[in-house]
Design a protein around this nucleic acid. Sequence first.
DNA 1: CGTAAATGTTTTTTT
DNA 2: AACATTTACG
Length: 741
Amino acid sequence: MPPETKDRVDALLEGLNPPQREAVTHGEGPLLILAGAGSGKTRVLTHRIAWLLRTGRARADEILAITFTNKAAQEMRERVELLVGRATRAMWVMTFHSACARMLRADAHRLGYTRQFTIYDAADSRRVIKKVVDDLDIDPKRFTPRAMQAQISDAKNKLRSADDYRGLVGSFFEQTVADVYEQYERELHRANAMDFDDLLFRAVNVLELFQEVRDRYASAFRWILVDEYQDTNHAQYRWLQLLSSEHRNLAVVGDDDQAIYAFRGADIRNILDFEDDYPDAHVVRLEQNYRSTQIILSAANAVVSNNRGRKVKSLWTEVGEGDPIKVRELADEHAEARFVVAEVERLVDEGVSRAEIAVFYRTNAQSRVLEDMLVRAQIGYQVIGGTKFYERAEIKDAISYLTFLVNPADGGAFTRVANSPKRGIGQTSLSRILAHADTTGITPWEAAEHPEQVPMLGKAAQKAIGRFMSVMERLRERAAGEAPVGDLLEEMLRETGYTDALQAERTIEAQGRIENLEELVRVAREYDATAPDETRGVGEFLQQIALLSDADERRDDEGLVTLMTLHNAKGLEFPIVFMIGCEDGVFPHSRALDEGDVEEERRLAYVGITRAMRDLYITYARRRNAFGANSFGVRSRFVDEIPRELTDQPDRNAVGIGRPAGSGRVASWATAAAASAEALGGRREPDGAGQVFRMGDDVIHAAFGDGVVTGVEPGGIVVVRFAGDRSERKLMADYAPIRKR
DNA sequence: CGTAAATGTTTTTTT
DNA sequence: AACATTTACG
């Protein structure tokens, strides 16, 4: 190695601790990196890639790096480029699904798909399943499409085909699933479409069935690196196995304590058994945490240590003790939101940037109350997840138009756009056209091209279809002529009258939709400008956006408070973290309790806690609006698993809805309500006269307005923080003009 | 064929 | 409570 190169390699290793360095400089052979939360695993991955490149062990096109989100992939590529000082376009850094889609574009023809195959999202797939259930005369009440979909997805994640599944049938339910699965596969194939699970499944199929494809990739990818390995499923495991079969340079990074995707088929054994699969694997443990205070780490450790069957690890930090964890009980979800918002305002006053603050919750629905409150307080925020941009009706419509242009077999896309905007093509006409295509073995596009040949189709419908298709024909020529996607999209929105129809509505919502479509055009133009030549085109654009996730939309430089589910929080860190809704039934989720998946929920708690660098707030509510009805809650068991001395509420059981001493669990809302009443004891509000105030109560003051009780002191004094001027005042409960809301 | 009202269903987490 | 889907009517 020339001395100059050696210096640059040494520079790469500077600032790494010994185990990190060991992982980065591991040579040939399998490598397992057990990386505790905040132990710098991303740093290790990027430095390892840079090291492989710098030392000449790898060319960029010999590296395959798998990340969990597209955003993470992009960041990883940028960081590697910074380290090695040049572009790394040839390197494959992407998610499992993106990598598989890319491989399938090249080789799907071997399985009877074209390279323009459509990627169906969960909603598209659900629609197909519904149709199948309907066609097969199955009672959708007994066999809900939702359950069917879950079963099929599960099978695919285990690499079980419809045939395989049928062979394992053990009940009437499964028998029915087998029928649906089989027909579903036929429908997808006929539409030249794949669902998310297919991308992995079919990619494995191609590698297994075609030796030359396997050889091509297995020899190309000399170095493979995988992040978040604890959340891989069997199909992903097999895919990696096939790709790494030749060089065996597979490096995986993960933490079994952060496995939170079992519900999606992830198999924690993939990481636990790595050393059995690769007996010669080199194992590195990263146990020094660079992120959180000792108190936060201790809390996380205490909680997760209640799980069994984990690889024992001991995280430590040099960051220092830090502040106690702030635990708050609030009256209901509104008081909870008010507390969070008031605290955010206080922190911002202290000079904290909003971008340093995140709020985590178990389910997306919980963001709503919080959003209301943030809007009122005029605090900028972003919500990750929930209703996604690409799931909005108008965006789906626009995408379906493009999809139908490039994939004329996609009857789903056709159905979606044919009568949107309204042009007099109803459900009946559509069904006739699709049935005609079905029976004569032509594509929906071809059938629609010749409406006069469709049996039973009315004259008016024929004319409407004709007009629609002549627009589509023109657009298709433009698409084939490799027009930029942005131009094509704009033309489409204009020519089909889509924008005009929205404009005609003259409503604020329609205006919002138009703005969303403009945003989509902007995304397309961005794609036109940045996509490498070889991957340009409508088809590729569509496949790429189909694989975008919520997490990819996250922005971290615009001074916004971030709201997201605990699942979306994986891999991120924030100086200040709020975990809200910490009640049994909400978190851990009641469904998980029913199904005995408490350990996964606990890992979710571990993930949430370990995102916090400096300050952690945990809140729970006594009362919460579940289905329109109020339910009473009990503090989450996870809160009680945090040693009290790590919190600012060492005697928190003295007041409020503490878990009844000695009782193990409270699993249902019914028993929860009883337990709550018991815990409240004689402290329930008297009707009418003399009010009793508790921490978290919402109050209205005649002069100061809305507020929340932040403390109760002897002598009938209550401490109230007011939303209006954010002041905190001590008031005499009996004399001050305050009442509960 | 399209709209409006009525009914039923929904809340886990997501690539 | 909110939303989607179904049903009834114009």
